[in-house]
Structures are given as structure tokens and as C-alpha cells.
């Protein structure tokens, strides 16, 4: 598989205990609000609905598409859940999915689960929904709405990756100047797959069962443009947003790389203050020496190093992804086996 869920489902041991506990606190607080809001707005019938739709998100993460070289793209599903169920119920569904994956399949750890839920369940649903609504409100029509969902889906994956990179750095597990461009760069591509699947799924639902979309989406879908036309429009504009995604991915590197290579003292001081640093101070960045490329000066050099780093990590990640893909395929086959037998 293309490592969509795999690099974000951190196992135990990769985030330090202070980071894990801090994110458990934040996650618990946000989910408490979600529970209150969901209980207030949901009808009784949602009791089975949330559970079945959580199982749906789990199954939807199995749906893949072939990318290249034996890798494939997958869905994470945060924005899809938020748009279909609303952000509060969506975050409860995503948290349940992540909890079951950790408890039943050991996909993601227990102590670090707070951070995992924050990254995939809260940023993806609440954060993604804010972006979706913000962009959706700027334009009219169903096609614009789908575009907003695409941007939100891309953003949700990208933001989760950036936050994960910071968590890894704060945990002293990976230096920020490697983790940030690597995670941000790889997930800028993975986010494109997320956006494509999310948009196609929403367009499909809108054309077949528009009544299942939330009232607001329904109103927009019903008024004006035809759904199928909207979908085809979105497809025709596909190359445009594909290009936009690649530009955005490069932009992320360009914007973040200098930041990453800048004086890391701030982060170091946080580490020291909390007493969990075992790192020495100076010059810890040798993978690309001084984070510069010989023959190029200043920022340009940093940016090129960042892009090189992304390519390097991408290559390694794709290799690892093939291993994971084989494992998932084996699991899928086992499941199929026991279902056909």
C-alpha cells in the first residue's frame, strides 16, 4: 500500500511519555466536547448508525488503487466521515476506528493512542471540516463543494503528517529537519489520493442517494447543477488540482525547509525544560551536511536539500510500503479465504 495509514499509525515507543500524555489530555478534552455535541444533536437511531459507519470507515481503508511499482493508494477517511456525519459524530467514529485498530490489530499503540487519535481523528475530522466549510462558503454550487472537500482531505492528511513530525521531534525520535520535510513531502502526495477518493465517494453518494448527505450539502446538491455533471466537471478539472497538489507539496517543502533548518534551539529548550532530552546540542544534522548543498548558497540550497531529502525518504518509504502491502494482501486473502470457504 501507499503508506497512508501506516506512517500515521504510530506504535508505542515512538512518542515519549510526556508527548503521549499531553496529547491524551488534549484528545480527551476535544472528544468530551464531541460527545456532548453529538449527544445533543443526534437522534436515537444513530446508536447503530455510528457503529456500522465506523465499520464502514475500517472497510473503506481496505479499498486501494494501484499507483506504481507495486504501491497503492488508500483512504484515511477523516474528512469523508466529517462531511457524511458532521464533525462531532465524525470524530467519534474515527476515534473508535483507531481504538479498535489498536486493541484488535495492534495497528497503532495504546499509550500513544491519544496522539494517534489527535492526528488522524481530530485533525482529520474537526480540522478538515473547518477547512471544508471555510472554502465551501466562498463559492457556490456542487462542484465547488467537492473541490472544498478535496482541499480539506489533502489538508487533513498533510496536517496530520506535520503534527506527527513535530511529535516525533519533541519525543526525540527523529530530528525535525528530517522528519518534517519527509513527512510533509510524502504526505503531500498521499493527500492527493485521499482527496481523489474522498471526492469520488462523495460524488457517488450525491448521485445515488443524495438524501444521505447532510442537509446543507443536500440543498446545494439539489439546487442548480446536476450531480453527474458536477462529478464530470470535477474530473475534467482533475489535472488542474493534481498540478495544484504537486505545487502545494513543493511549497510545503519550500516554506518548511528553511524553518526546519533554522536554529533548532526553541525545540531543544522545550526538551531540556521538560527534562527529557538526552540529545547533545550542536550540529546534529549530518544527513545532508549543514542542510546545505555544496555549490548552492543560502535558502536555495536549503530548499534543494529539503527536496532531495523528500525524494530519498520517498524511495525508502516506497520500499517499506511494499512490505506492508504484502502483509495487507496476505490479511485480505486470509479474510477472503475464510469467507469463501
Amino acid at each position: 500500500m501507499f503508506p497512508a495509514p501506516f506512517l500515521l499509525h504510530a506504535p508505542d515507543g515512538f512518542f515519549s511519555v510526556p508527548v503521549s500524555v499531553a496529547f491524551w489530555v488534549v484528545t480527551a478534552a476535544v472528544l468530551a466536547i464531541s460527545v456532548r455535541e453529538a449527544n445533543r444533536s443526534l437522534e436515537e437511531r444513530t446508536v447503530p448508525t455510528l457503529g456500522v459507519l465506523a465499520a464502514f470507515i475500517f472497510a473503506a481503508q481496505m479499498v486501494n488503487f494501484q499507483v506504481a511499482g507495486g504501491t497503492s493508494g488508500h483512504l484515511l477517511g477523516g474528512v469523508l466521515a466529517a462531511v457524511l456525519l458532521g464533525p462531532w459524530a465524525g470524530s467519534i467514529v474515527m476515534a473508535s476506528v483507531i481504538a479498535v485498530q489498536a486493541l484488535v490489530f495492534q495497528d497503532g499503540g495504546l499509550v500513544v493512542m491519544g496522539a494517534n487519535i489527535f492526528n488522524m481523528g481530530i485533525i482529520g475530522t474537526l480540522g478538515g471540516y473547518v477547512v471544508y466549510r471555510a472554502i465551501a462558503s466562498l463559492g457556490r454550487g456542487w462542484r465547488w463543494q467537492l473541490g472544498a472537500a478535496a482541499v480539506a482531505a489533502w489538508f487533513a492528511v498533510e496536517a496530520a503528517a506535520v503534527v506527527t513530525a513535530f511529535q516525533l521531534a519533541l519525543s526525540d525520535t527523529s530530528p525535525l529537519n528530517v522528519a518534517l520535510p519527509a513527512m510533509a513531502g510524502v504526505h503531500a502526495l498521499i493527500g492527493l489520493g485521499e482527496a481523489a477518493i474522498t471526492v469520488a465517494a462523495l460524488a457517488f453518494i450525491a448521485s445515488v442517494r443524495p438524501d444521505l448527505l447532510q442537509a446543507r450539502e443536500r440543498a446545494i446538491a439539489a439546487g442548480g447543477e446536476g450531480h453527474a455533471g458536477g462529478l464530470r466537471g470535477a474530473l475534467r478539472s482533475g489535472p488542474a488540482w493534481l498540478a495544484a497538489g504537486i505545487v502545494a507539496s513543493a511549497l510545503v517543502v519550500v516554506v518548511l525547509a528553511p524553518f526546519a533548518s533554522a536554529d533548532p534551539d526553541g525545540l531543544q529548550r522545550v526538551a531540556t525544560d521538560y527534562g527529557f532530552d538526552t540529545v547533545a546540542q550542536a550540529n546534529p544534522y549530518e544527513i545532508l551536511p549543514g542542510y546545505t548543498v555544496p555549490g548552492l548558497g543560502g535558502t536555495a540550497s536549503t530548499v534543494v536539500s529539503g527536496l532531495l531529502g523528500v525524494l530519498l525518504v520517498l524511495a525508502v518509504v516506497l520500499g517499506a510500503a511494499r512490505i506492508v502491502a504484502a502483509r495487507r494482501a496476505a490479511r485480505l486473502q486470509r479474510e477472503e479465504a475464510s469467507s469463501t470457504a
Partner: peptide, 15 residues
């Protein structure tokens, strides 16, 4: 990718 998304959509309706 779009086909994968439609399968996800169809799965949602069935769910």
C-alpha cells in the same frame, strides 16, 4: 483513484 472512491461510496450506501 476515482474508481476506488466510487467503491468507497457504494460501500457507504450499503453500510
Amino acid at each position: 483513484a476515482v474508481v476506488a472512491g466510487r467503491i468507497v461510496g457504494a460501500l457507504f450506501i450499503r453500510a
